[in-house]
Design a binder for these strands. Structure first.
Length: 587
DNA sequence: GCCGTTTTCGGCCCGACTGTTTTCAGTCG
C-alpha cells in the first residue's frame, strides 16, 4: 500500500469522525498523521516491516496498531466500523476541491450518490443546488472542482517544477516592480516531488507586480486576479499561484507559505508559549487584560532570519523545515551547516558517448565535450562512469582492450584541458552479488561505481547479501543509486540499511546520492540516517548528456534535506584531497 | 489520538475566503 493510499484512508476516517462529531483534536491527530505519511520519503509499509513506524511523527500507539492491522490483514476493523456508519458515497467525493467532510455527507445523504460521475450529473441537472445549505454558486464550484480533479496529473518531479518556477522567477525579476521573488511550499523545500507551484514576490507596487505576472509569455489564461494574489494557467496546463507583499513583511510571507505545515504548527506552539502569535503578516504579541485578549503587532519581518530570531532560534534553511528535529536544533544553535552547491568540486557519475560496446544507454557527448562542460561548472574532476560492456558478448580481453582505448583519450584530455577525467566505470552488481567485470580489470580503474540494474524483486535478505557482497569487493568505491527507485514507477528495493552502513563504514565505501530527476536516490530520509552514522556520501548526476550535469543542484538538495554537511560529501574535496582519499595515481 | 527539559494529564496553529445566512459554518492553505 502506498503512502498516498494510506494517507487517503486516514483522511477518510478523519472525515467520518468529523461528521460524527468526534473530538476535534482526535480528528486533527488523524489528519496530522495523514499529512505526515503522505510527505514521508520512505514507504511507510517498509518502515512497518523493519519496525520503524515510530519514525513517523504524529503516528502514536493507536494509529500504529491500526496500520499494523492494515498491512497484515489488508483492512482495519475499527476504521470499517466508523466509516460504515455513514453513506459510502461521501468518501468517494471527498477529494474534490470545495467538498469537505460535512458537505460530502450532506450531498451523499440527500441525493444518495455513489460516485463522482453521479455527483456531476446532479450538479448539471440542478439537483445539487437544491440541497439545503448549498446553492447555485456552490454547485458551479463543485463542477469546476470535478474538472480539476480529472485534469490533475499528480505531483511533478522536483527538477521539472523547479525549472518551470525558475523560468517564471527569472522573467519576473526583469520587471521594475518586482524586488525579490521565490518559489514557495514543497518546491522551496526541494522535496523530491512537488504538488503546486506557488511563487511569492516583494513589491512596492502591488498592482504593477500582479500585472507583470499575468502578462508573462508563459501564461495561457488568468484564472483569478486580486490585489494580493493571482492565479494563472500556463500554456503547458500547469496552474501557478502568485502572491505579493510589501518588502517589510516579505520574510513573514515567505516563511508562512514555505511550510512545511508540521514545521509551522510546531513554531506556532513555541510562539504561543512565549505569548506570541504567528501569521503570514508577521509576529504579534498576545496580551491578556482580565478575560480580554488583545494582540499587538510586534514585527512584520522583512526577512526570514528576523522571523526565526524573534522566536529565539537560528535561521533554518528551507530544506530542513519538516519538523524532524530542526526546530530543537535551531534553538540549541546546533543546526548542521548543510552542503552548498558551490561546495561541489566534481561529478563522479557521468556517461560518455565513447562506445565500449554497451548494448544500450550510451551518453550523448564525447569525453572532450564533457570535460569542457565540467570546467564551465567550475569542477576540478569528473569520473567517466560508462556502463560495462554486455558481459555475455565479450571476453575479458576484449573488455580490457576497449577500456585501454578509452583510457588513451582520457589521458590526452587530462594533459590538455586543465581538468581531471577519472577512468571509471559503472559496473552491474549481478543477482548473486558478483560484479559484471573481473577484478583484474576493475583494479586498473581510478574509481568504480557499482549499481544494481536487474533482479529488483529479490527479498530483503537476498538483496542485502547481494549488495554487501559487492561492497566487500576491494575494487568497489561507490554504491550507485542505492535503492534503485524510480519515482512514480518503481519502489526502491528492500534492503537492511544498518548492515549496508556497517560495511560502508568498515570498508570505506561511499553511498551515492544520484541526482537523476526520477531517482533522487538515496532518498533524503536515508541520507539523514547515513550522515548520523558517519557514512561518506558522493553526489553525482548520472548525466548522459552535458546538460544533465546541471542536475547537480537537485542532488545537493537531497543531501541538504538529509542534513549532510560539506565534510560528509567526498566530491566536496579538492582534487588533491580527493585523489589521496581514493588513492588515485596521478596520470 | 498525540505528545512531553515546565506536563504521562491536559493541552493541542492561524487567518482568509466564500456562500448562504441573517451571524456563521465549512473549506482551504
Amino acid at each position: 500500500m502506498t503512502n498516498l493510499e494510506i494517507a487517503r484512508l486516514l483522511r477518510k476516517v478523519a472525515a467520518a469522525y468529523t461528521v460524527l462529531g468526534e473530538n476535534f483534536f482526535k480528528i486533527q491527530a488523524y489528519e496530522k498523521a495523514a499529512d505526515s505519511i503522505e510527505h514521508a520519503t520512505s514507504e511507510v509499509e517498509d518502515l512497518f516491516e523493519v519496525g520503524k513506524l515510530d519514525m513517523i511523527p504524529g503516528v502514536g500507539e493507536h494509529i500504529k496498531k491500526y496500520l499494523a492491522e492494515l498491512f497484515k490483514k489488508g483492512k482495519v476493523v475499527h476504521f470499517d466500523l466508523v466509516m460504515g456508519k455513514l453513506p459510502k458515497g461521501m468518501f468517494e467525493i471527498l477529494g474534490i476541491p470545495g467538498i469537505g467532510p460535512k458537505t460530502a455527507y450532506k450531498i451523499a445523504k440527500t441525493l444518495g450518490i455513489s460516485s463522482i460521475s453521479d455527483l456531476k450529473d446532479t450538479a448539471v441537472s440542478g439537483k445539487l443546488a437544491k440541497v439545503p445549505g448549498l446553492g447555485g454558486k456552490t454547485a458551479r464550484e463543485i463542477l469546476k472542482g470535478i474538472e480539476e480533479v480529472s485534469r490533475r496529473k499528480g505531483r511533478m518531479l522536483l527538477p521539472y517544477a523547479w525549472s518551470l518556477a525558475n523560468d517564471i522567477v527569472t522573467a519576473l525579476k526583469k520587471s521594475s516592480d518586482i524586488l525579490e521573488a521565490y518559489p514557495l511550499g514543497s518546491l522551496r523545500r526541494m522535496v523530491a516531488t512537488v504538488g503546486d507551484i506557488d511563487i511569492a514576490a516583494s513589491t512596492k507596487n502591488h498592482a504593477g507586480a500582479i500585472n507583470a505576472f499575468i502578462k508573462l509569455p508563459q501564461v495561457e489564461r488568468v484564472v483569478d486576479k486580486g490585489e494580493h494574489k493571482a492565479t494563472v494557467v500556463l500554456k503547458n496546463g500547469r496552474q501557478v499561484d502568485f502572491m505579493v507583499t510589501s518588502p517589510n513583511r516579505f520574510g513573514a510571507l515567505l516563511q508562512h507559505f514555505t511550510g512545511s505545515k508540521m514545521h509551522n504548527i510546531h513554531l506556532r506552539k513555541i510562539a504561543n508559549e512565549k505569548g506570541l502569535s504567528l501569521s503570514e503578516y508577521g509576529i504579534s504579541k498576545i496580551s491578556q487584560v482580565g478575560d480580554q485578549f488583545a494582540s499587538d503587532f510586534l514585527a512584520k519581518c522583512k526577512s526570514e532570519e528576523e522571523f526565526y530570531k524573534i522566536l529565539g532560534m537560528d535561521y533554518i534553511p528551507p530544506e530542513l523545515r519538516e519538523d524532524t528535529g530542526e526546530i530543537e536544533a535551531a534553538i540549541a544553535h546546533k543546526l548542521p551547516k548543510v552542503v552548498e552547491p558551490e561546495d561541489i568540486k566534481g561529478d563522479l557519475h557521468v556517461h560518455s558517448s565513447f562506445d565500449i560496446e554497451t548494448s544500450h544507454d550510451l551518453g550523448e557527448n564525447s569525453l572532450s565535450e564533457l570535460a569542457k562542460h565540467a570546467k564551465e561548472l567550475g569542477y576540478e574532476y569528473i569520473a567517466i562512469a560508462d556502463h560495462n560492456p554486455s558481459v555475455s558478448g565479450h571476453t575479458p580481453v576484449q573488455i580490457e582492450r576497449l577500456l585501454v582505448r578509452r583510457l588513451k583519450l582520457i589521458e590526452q584530455i587530462n594533459s590538455s584541458r586543465g581538468i581531471k577525467l577519472l577512468n571509471s566505470i559503472e559496473v552491474d552488481i549481478l543477482a548473486d552479488g558478483t560484479l559484471a567485470i573481473s577484478d583484474e580489470i576493475l583494479l586498473g580503474l581510478d574509481l568504480v561505481v557499482a549499481s544494481v540494474h536487474s533482479s529488483f524483486n529479490q527479498n530483503l535478505e537476498i538483496m542485502t547479501k547481494r549488495v554487501l557482497r559487492a561492497l566487500e569487493n576491494p575494487n568497489v568505491d561507490i554504491l550507485g543509486h542505492p535503492t534503485g527507485r524510480l519515482i512514480g514507477s518503481r519502489e526502491g528495493f528492500e534492503i537492511d540499511w544498518d548492515k549496508i552502513f556497517d560495511v560502508c563504514k568498515s570498508k570505506h565505501k561511499a553511498l551515492e546520492i544520484n541526482a537523476w530527476p526520477e531517482r533522487l536516490d538515496l532518498p533524503d530520509t536515508i541520507v539523514r540516517e547515513a550522515v548520523a552514522k558517519g557514512i561518506k556520501l558522493v553526489i553525482s548526476t548520472d548525466a548522459h548528456a552535458t546538460k544533465q550535469m546541471d542536475n547537480m543542484r537537485f542532488g545537493v538538495a537531497v543531501a541538504r534535506r538529509g542534513w549532510a554537511e560539506k565534510t560528509d560529501v567526498l566530491n566536496c574535496l579538492s582534487w588533491l584531497d580527493f585523489s589521496k582519499y581514493f588513492r588515485i595515481q596521478s596520470r
